[in-house]
Computed example of a mutant assay.
Amino acid sequence: MAKYSRIIAQAGCHIHHAEPAQVYEAWTNPELMKTWMFLSGESRESEAKADVTEGGAWSVVNESQEETYRAYGEYLKIDPPERIEKTLVRKETGGQNEKIKVEINSILNGSQVIVTQDVVFLHHEQLHPKTVEEHLREQRRQTEKYWHEMFSLLSKQLTPS
């Protein structure tokens, strides 16, 4: 039988020369979302949808030669341009909701973005607790690394050339 364990991952970045309203727009405008959110290096085609209202749905689909990646969820709290809270569902979580909180702060020469994610790790209930802890630490590390990769793409979209 499957069991779910959770861990909190957090990542942040400084996006130079982008005001919080621009960063917020990149998180909520589907045309911008598909240029950086949940992309892999081999993504060929992306689509995104967003009903940016509390209770509204959002989704991102990225296709590569190897697979189609889908992420979707519901907006829980919208406080433009400073905060977005939403759920995240992906196949790796077996349909379990993760929560993502995005905080956007104005700082000197740009914006600071902090993402906190409630990461779900799906495992067999008989897995040894030490092994679960190791996997959770690795999940946190991988999630934080992935957010930093997305921040790099986001920054490229928002920083003038």
Rank of each mutant, 00 (worst) to 15 (best):
Ala71Asp: 04
Gly56Asn: 12
Glu149Lys: 04
Arg140Ala: 09
Ala57Glu: 11
Lys91Asn: 12
Lys91Ile: 14
Gln157Phe: 03
Ser155Ile: 04
Gln142Thr: 15
Glu54Val: 13
Leu76Pro: 06
Gln139Gly: 00
Ala48Gly: 08
Ala48Phe: 06
Asn97Ile: 00
Lys101Gly: 06
Glu45Ala: 10
Glu134Arg: 15
Asn29Leu: 00
Ile78Thr: 11
Leu76Asn: 11
Lys156Asn: 02
Glu31Asp: 03
His17Glu: 06
His16Met: 02
Thr35Lys: 13
Asn109Gly: 01
Lys145Phe: 14
Gly56Val: 11
Ser46Arg: 03
Tyr75Ile: 13
Glu133Met: 04
Gly95Asn: 09
Ser5Asp: 12
Asn97Cys: 08
Arg70Cys: 15
Glu25Phe: 07
Glu98Pro: 09
Leu76Gly: 11
Glu85Arg: 13
Leu158Asp: 06
Leu76Arg: 15
Thr53Pro: 00
Ile7Leu: 06
Ile15His: 11
Gly55Lys: 02
Trp58Gln: 08
Ser46Pro: 00
Leu122Thr: 04
Ile84Tyr: 03
Phe121Lys: 03
Ser106Met: 12
Thr93Ser: 15
Lys145Asp: 14
Glu74Lys: 13
Gln22Asn: 01
Lys91Asp: 15
Asn97Lys: 14
Lys130Ile: 05
Lys156Ser: 01
Tyr146Pro: 01
Ala50Leu: 10
Gln96Thr: 15
Ser111Arg: 03
Leu136Phe: 01
Val132Met: 04
Gln142Asp: 15
Gln22Ser: 05
Thr87Trp: 13
Phe121Glu: 02
Met150Val: 01
Ile104Ala: 08
Gly56Lys: 13
Gln126His: 06
Trp27Val: 03
Glu54Gly: 08
Ser152Asn: 11
Ile114Gln: 09
Arg140Ser: 07
